[in-house]
Amino acid sequence: MAKVEVTKELIRRVAQNAHLNLSEQELEKFAPQIKEIILDSFDRLDEIDAADEKPSFQPVEMQNVFRKDGPKKCLTQEEALGNAKKELKEKGYFKGPKVL
């Protein structure tokens, strides 16, 4: 199948998708490295026909796993907030940046 052209613009866009701001310097550094990995390694899979294979999402075959769904002991609200810094919690809740 037709593959993509790996450009700085594409890498910047992918990075933004993943919440990463890349500096111009980082882009200069990463672009050829990522291009090399995609073209010389990832694209190698084009050589092999696996269309009829089932994908192995796990290396060991597994059946559906069920467990009883009932109430259990869990963290208290105070404990759950234990790793948040003072400025990022309020009235028993986490505080975050605005979304809208």
Binding site: A15, N17, L20, N21, I34
Partner: peptide, 21 residues
Amino acid sequence: SEIRSANFTDEAKRRIILGTF
């Protein structure tokens, strides 16, 4: 974006970009 950009190493950034792609 600010927190992630300032705290991941280069290798983590590369792998996040490759995997997201």
